[in-house]
Amino acid sequence: MWCAFFLCHRSVYVCMNSILLTFLKQKTILMKMPLLFTLPLCLGLTFSSQLFSGEEEIPQYVSENGMVDKGTYNGYRRFHGTCHACHGQDAAGSSFAPSLVDALKDMDYAAFTKTVTEGRQATSASGAVSAMPAFAADPNVMKHLDDIYRYLSARSDGVVGTGRPKKIPKKK
C-alpha cells in the first residue's frame, strides 16, 4: 500500500510542478500562486484525471500502522449502512449472503462494480434462489462505491480487521 500512497504523492508532485512550470513560462502573475493553492487544485486534477482516463483506475486503500485513509474509513461506514444487512457485520457473510472478505479475493474491481450496479441472481444446487439487488439508483451506495471497495479490499487483504478501523490522523 505504500506504493499507492507514493503514486498518489508522485502524481500530485508532478502536477504541482507542471502548473508551476506553466505559470513560469507564461510569466503571469499567477506564477506567484502560493503552494497552498496549487495543492488542492492538483489533488482535484489528479482525481478527475482518474475519472476521465480511458483505463479504469482501481481505488486503493492506504494503511499506516493499522490505521486507514479517510476513504477506506468511509467505506466501513457506508458498508455498514446498507450492505451489511445481507453481507453481515465486517463483511463476514450471513446465513444467506456470502462473505465478501472471501469473495473479494477472486473478484476484481470491474466485476465488483458490475455486481453492485446491476445486481445478480443465482440458484443453488438445492434450488434456493439468492438475489443481490441492483444499486444503480441508490446514491447512498453509488456515491461511495470506491470507498466501499477500498474497505472491502482492505478486509480481504487482511489489512483491516473486524470492527471500526482507525483513521490516519490529518497531517499538519
Binding site: 457485520q89 463476514a92 450471513s94 446465513s95 480487521g161
Partner: peptide, 27 residues
C-alpha cells in the same frame, strides 16, 4: 432453521470494536 436478523449478526460471530487490527473480546 437458522436465519433472520440473528442469522445476519451472528453468522460470523459478534465481535467488539477493535484496537487497530484483530478482534478484541468475544468471538
Amino acid at each position: 432453521g437458522l436465519g433472520g436478523w440473528a442469522g445476519i449478526g451472528f453468522a460470523a460471530g459478534l465481535t467488539g470494536d477493535t484496537d487497530g487490527l484483530g478482534a478484541v473480546g468475544a468471538y
